[in-house]
Amino acid sequence: MITNKQSTGIRGLDKMLHGGLVPGRAYIVSGPEGSGKTILSTQFLVDGVEGGERVLFVALEEPPNELKYNLRVFGWPIDGIEVLDANSDIRRFEPTPILEISTEEEPFRFSQIKDEIRKTSDTESHEVTVHSLQQLLKSLFLKRGYSRVVIDSMTALRYFCMKDFEENISTQSFMRFLAESKVTTLLTVETTEAMEMAPEAFLARGEIRLYRVRDESGIKRFISIEKYKGSTHDESIRSFEITPKGIVVHAG
């Protein structure tokens, strides 16, 4: 029994996880579009910031300026969260140099993020690959000692950053890298109705799954723990809501 579990920042979810997450491991947050993956993950980081921890948000699908705007409705202390803008630039079709995202790239605090979107430069185009991101994260983990990291999303990493790599093997190696880094990581994964299990779910130490069901009264949201290595957990599907204060899980 591990006693020093890390809170997810969501009381009901902690209860489902029988105390929280085992620190230093990678977990999957999966669900369809609009199910609340990004909100859940950010709440996990906010909990860290509130406890004085250093935390990192790796933005692969949403520009940080929009993320900042979107999150402001919750009134969380997000200013201290560091954000790494890992969105690839517009691709050049002309033969201009394509540069892999540099290992010198720095994450910024939300408080430093500008309101406008970062513009692709006219002379060069930055491209994020799984390889370059891993290198960058490796040096960042060493220098900055993050205790919590969110990769939003693993789907974007697979889809847009593995062009010249074998997807499953790169995913496995990336997950291995996270495991060796011993940072508690949430990876968001987008699912569709008819999708088979994602390899990252197979490799992760746990999977929190979000569901979104439409019925006459609107969208209903549910959450379940599909897998949790090294810990017991709630086996049922519980309902949850996205409230003005964030995610609230009704854990019975």
């Binding site: 690839s88 517009i90 692709t120």
Partner: peptide, 19 residues
């Protein structure tokens, strides 16, 4: 294929930057 995803990703990025 993969290229199509990256193309569309780049296209969406392009539209975002047009503001």
């Amino acid at each position: 294929g993969v290229d199509s995803r990256i193309m569309i990703q780049s296209f969406i990025r392009f539209l975002s930057e047009l503001e």
